[in-house]
Design a protein around this nucleic acid. Structure first.
Lengths: 162, 162
DNA sequence: GATATCGTACTCGGATATACATTGTCCGAGTGGTGACGG
DNA sequence: CCGTCACCACTCGGACAATGTATATCCGAGTACGATATC
């Protein structure tokens, strides 16, 4: 069970966007450059994020991507949902209803126990992700980073936003 | 993010094994037949389960797979670990250490906030799975199933164990 | 000098190849049971 | 009639294809900015 690395890329990109003044965005190229990632592939992931309603896209010169909502209203789960989709990792294909021992009048209204257990586990997982907002991450990052780092980011941003 | 369907197959197979008398097993063919699954593929998954120490394999005529421990000591997580591996779904590749703004004396001893958040979420997920044992599932299944179903299973088992 | 218009550069968006993991299948290795043979 | 041995059927184990999904890239569509020509 492996999560797409696009989730990591876009999560970091959104954290960067969350550190910007509200309403300000960056093009996909800049977002990729900030973490030394493949620009084209990053662009593709940002498209998914736009389709998911996490970011808004602005075309044309000076355009780019910006957060669609305040950073406090965007959780890590929103990003995962936009990139990976909302389907659960464990998909019950109801194999209990197959085989030589299934009775014709079998009652399958009760949920599959295995399905139920995995469903509960996944709900706990999602709840954790929903409880972490971009604002949390952004503040943690800016607060913990060194003054040199913050200065370097400021210079880089001024160049990109000019 | 999708979990291998082998997890579902082996989980149901283990539930069946847990319903058997202690020490008794079934060949992979029978386990596949019980849920109308591809025999060869089921065999492959059972091998992974054996490597993971969840079941023991017995070769030769009359052999098969049986639980390596009491059903109360086997959790759903043990099965997931055997099939999917213990690696977390979210793998942090530390992209925060890349890019034009990383300072030479950057201090990365503090864990990545995004990595940390996903790690906590995944731990909650695992904890849920670890709390559900095969015994729980087996008893739920046998208790909830209809008498006709139980009779059909008994007949089928007598044929297979003969 | 101000304004309307055209061109250009920049950015997103989707369509298109490639690599890798999962899915699916097969044949060889090993083991217990069974029947035949000899005592 | 009983014990031993060889054979055979059964089962696991790993090696080998086929398929699907994630990865990676490119080119076309659309928009804002700026230069230019005109009034």
């Amino acid at each position: 069970m492996k999560m797409t690395e696009g989730v990591e890329w876009t999560a970091h990109a959104c954290a960067l966007l969350a550190a910007l003044p509200p309403g300000i965005g960056l093009p996909a190229n800049a977002l990729a450059e900030f973490h030394a990632l493949a620009p084209a592939y990053m662009a593709k992931h940002m498209q998914a994020l736009a389709r998911g309603g996490v970011v808004e896209s602005v075309r044309g010169a000076g355009g780019g991507y910006r957060l669609a909502r305040p950073a406090t209203d965007i959780s890590l789960w929103d990003i995962v949902e936009a990139i990976e989709g909302a389907e659960p990792a464990f998909r019950c294909s109801e194999i209990r209803q197959q085989g030589p021992c299934v009775t014709p009048n079998g009652d399958f209204r009760k949920p599959c126990e295995i399905h139920s257990a995995f469903g509960k586990a996944e709900m706990a997982w999602r709840a954790h992700l929903k409880s972490v907002s971009l604002a949390d991450i952004a503040t943690e990052v800016t607060r913990k980073s060194s003054p040199q780092k913050r200065a370097a980011v400021t210079v880089w941003l001024q160049e990109k936003l000019a």
